[in-house]
Structures are given as structure tokens and as C-alpha cells.
Amino acid sequence: MLKGHQSWIFNSKPVILSSAAVGGPFEAQGPLGSDFDLLHEDIWLGQDSYEKAEKKFLEQACEIAIQKANLKKEDIQFFISGDLMNQIISSSFAARTIGAPYLGIFGACSSSMEGLAIASLLIASKSAEYVVSATSSHNASAEKQFRYPTEYGSQKPPTAQWTVTGAGAALLAQEGDGPRVTSATIGRVIDMGISDPFNMGSAMAPAAVDTIEAHFRDFNISPDYYDVIATGDLGKIGHRIAGDLLAEHGLKIPREILTDCGILIYKKEQPVIAGGSGCACSATVTYGHFLNRMRKGELKRILIIATGALLSPLSYQQKESIPCIAHAVSIEM
């Protein structure tokens, strides 16, 4: 049901029956390593290309989520997925394996919450019994497509971020036990004219701020309603900018509530420069870490704002600025 300008409220509260997070070796070394369901030592996963490895990550996340809910692939009515690869091949190829009716989406790194919002809408409108929403990213395949070859020796600036290798999946149902999706706010495309692909945090921060403000305006609640408000992958720099920008706009979010998945996923000592990024950043942290904490009773209400930079390798070479988007989903226990 529409609420305010750009939000949906799900009165039936779709349940996240199960969720899964799969990660690579770098994620395993991070502080959230124990929240992953499966960790791989090899970023190739025994495949002969990074793209195939990414697809494998996504398939595994979906399989684990389905298995955890004691369901079979055939029970899944719709599969919603998105990723960063050209023509979202990881998602479509994983959908070929899963065999469920499939909706491919692209919201860059915001795909995780875009997928979760659409899946919740399908469940809330009684259009489906079981829906899987998933997303993936792979450090090497993203570097290959968007930047330089992985072994190329260029020095990255202090604003650069590290794409998370992994995949996250959530299985939603009409009824059952687990965290429930209560509302979602769909973001607008915001472009502040930043065109440096090594500075995604600054480019995406205004989009996150816009969506957060829209969310609190539409629902007329205050930030302390939530135990955690986490942006997707702003990294250290974008997180600081977003916090300051929100304060400047008069929306004060306590420091201990506002956090960022891109900061949480890696340790300070890991050479990730400004933090994590990629579709799998918000997906693995939300579907692994945050949902685990909710199930343990440590968190009651969380708001995840997945941020995405809607650029293509061509658009930035043609000196276009980077349009950004953010989608917020609120999950309550």
C-alpha cells in the first residue's frame, strides 16, 4: 500500500523465512566472517572465469536459503535478482539453474534492497507464496568490467572502495517465523555531478540521504524508531558525508544507530582503502550479520538503505557524471 510519496507499507508483513550469505576469502578475514553460511578460500570457485565464479556464488546463496527453509527449488514461485555484470548475466544464468519464474533487476549495488522490496510487494499482494530475492558481486569481475585488470599496477586513490566477493539471498513467505519486512521506500535518481568512479562514496551519499529523509517523512517517525540504520556501501568517506548532510538537513541520527555495511564488513587493517562496495556488500551484511542478530534478539528494527551508482564503463569514459540511487527497506522482528 502506498504511504506518503514514495513508500510502501506492507500490512501483511512478509516473513523472511530464511536467508543466506556466501563470501570469499577476503570476507572470511573480516569481522563478520562467522555470519556467513559458506566461505570460499578460492575466488575462482573452481570455475574457469570470474564471471562463472560469481554466478556460482549466487546459485549457492539461493540454494542455501531454500534448503534452510526446508523447501525445494520447485516451491519457489518467483526469483528476483540483480548484479553488476553487463546484462546482469550472473542473475540470469543463476535463474537458469534455479528454474523458477524470474524477474531480473538492475539497481547496481542497490539491487539487494530493490529486490527485497519487490519480493515483499509480491508477497504482500498475495501474488506469490514463496519468493527468493538475491544478488551478487565479485571483486575481480567488477574490477575487470568497470576499472582495470586485477593485476594492473595502478595506484588507487584514498577514496576508492573494494568490491565485495559474495552473494546474499533471502526467501520470503506469507507466513512463518522470522524477521518481517514492514515497509520500503523507493529512491529517486540523484546526480550531484561527481564523475570519478574511484569516488563512489561521495557520489552515492546524497542519494542515501534523499531516501532516508523520504522514509522518515513518509512514515512520520523519528530515527530512534530503529535500532540500526545501515547504508549499503558508502564506505568511510560516504558515510561521513551522509551523516553530516543529514545533520545539516536537520535530521539527527545518533552516531551509534547510523552505520554502513561497507565499513562493517572489513577490518581496519584490511587493504580496502575506503571500505567495501558492490551488491553483495549490503546483501551479505544484511542477510548474514543483521538478520542473525535479529534472530538472536539483539536487534528489533532495522532500516537498510542500499545505495547504487548507476554508471556504466562507457558512460564514465564519455565523461558522464554518476547518477545514484538508494532504496530503503525496514525489517522488524
Binding site: 550531484m192 555531478g193 561527481i194 546524497p206 558525508i241
Partner: peptide, 26 residues
């Protein structure tokens, strides 16, 4: 906001960019 050579940033964009610049490590 397209990428014409004589691209001009709007005042809001300019304001944001200097806001962000002040918070980026050099």
C-alpha cells in the same frame, strides 16, 4: 546534467561538491 563540454554544474551540485570535497582525504 549530460556531458556537454561546456557542462555547468547547478548551484546545488557545486555546493554539494565542495561539501563533499571538505570531507574526502586528499
Amino acid at each position: 546534467m549530460s556531458s556537454k563540454k561546456n557542462k555547468k554544474l547547478t548551484p546545488v551540485q557545486q555546493k554539494y561538491q565542495s561539501f563533499a570535497k571538505a570531507r574526502e582525504p586528499k
